[in-house]
Simulated scan of single mutants.
Amino acid sequence: MKALLSSRPVLWFLFLFNAAVAAAAPFVVDGTQGNMTGVGMGVVSLGAGGALLRGGRRATA
């Protein structure tokens, strides 16, 4: 499962999908729930983007 989640296509999907949801959530869902959904999805998107910048796969020890 770890190898699947660290593959480049999955990281791109996580980055783009979660960024889109983070941008849309505050407008679709009212109030605090929409804001917190946007923040949470944004954090996941930033994590996937960071993994893409690092090279996608980590060396196993």
Rank of each mutant, 00 (worst) to 15 (best):
M1G: 06
M1S: 15
M1C: 01
M1N: 10
M1Q: 12
K2M: 08
K2S: 11
K2I: 12
A3S: 15
A3P: 15
A3H: 08
L4I: 15
L4R: 13
L4W: 12
L5H: 08
L5I: 01
L5E: 00
S6F: 06
S6K: 10
S7D: 08
S7P: 08
S7F: 02
R8H: 04
R8Q: 09
P9R: 10
P9W: 13
P9T: 12
P9A: 09
P9E: 10
V10I: 12
L11R: 11
W12Y: 02
W12C: 09
F13K: 08
F13G: 01
F15I: 09
F15P: 15
F15S: 07
F15H: 02
L16I: 13
L16Y: 07
F17S: 14
F17N: 07
F17D: 13
F17L: 06
F17C: 12
N18K: 05
N18Q: 05
N18V: 04
N18G: 04
A19V: 06
A19L: 05
A20D: 01
A20F: 09
A20M: 14
A20N: 11
A20E: 02
V21F: 08
V21R: 10
V21C: 01
A22W: 06
A23G: 04
A23C: 12
A23V: 10
A23Q: 08
A23Y: 15
A24Y: 05
A24W: 11
A24N: 10
A24Q: 04
A24L: 07
A24H: 14
A24G: 14
A25R: 11
A25K: 12
P26H: 13
P26C: 01
F27P: 01
F27A: 14
V28E: 01
V29G: 13
V29K: 07
V29M: 05
V29F: 07
V29L: 00
D30G: 10
D30C: 03
G31W: 00
G31Q: 11
G31F: 01
T32P: 13
T32M: 08
T32Y: 00
Q33M: 05
Q33C: 03
Q33A: 12
G34Q: 01
G34N: 05
G34D: 00
G34A: 00
G34P: 14
N35Q: 02
N35T: 13
N35H: 10
N35Y: 09
M36H: 03
M36W: 02
T37G: 09
G38T: 11
G38Y: 07
V39G: 02
G40K: 03
G40E: 04
M41P: 09
M41C: 05
G42N: 06
G42H: 13
V43M: 11
V44T: 11
V44R: 11
V44S: 04
G47S: 04
G47W: 03
G47M: 07
A48D: 04
A48Y: 04
A48C: 15
G49C: 04
G49V: 13
G49F: 10
G50P: 02
A51Y: 00
L53F: 08
L53T: 15
L53G: 15
G55N: 07
G56R: 11
R57P: 15
R57Y: 00
R57I: 06
R58G: 03
T60M: 03
T60S: 00
T60V: 09
T60K: 06
T60W: 00
A61S: 15
A61D: 03
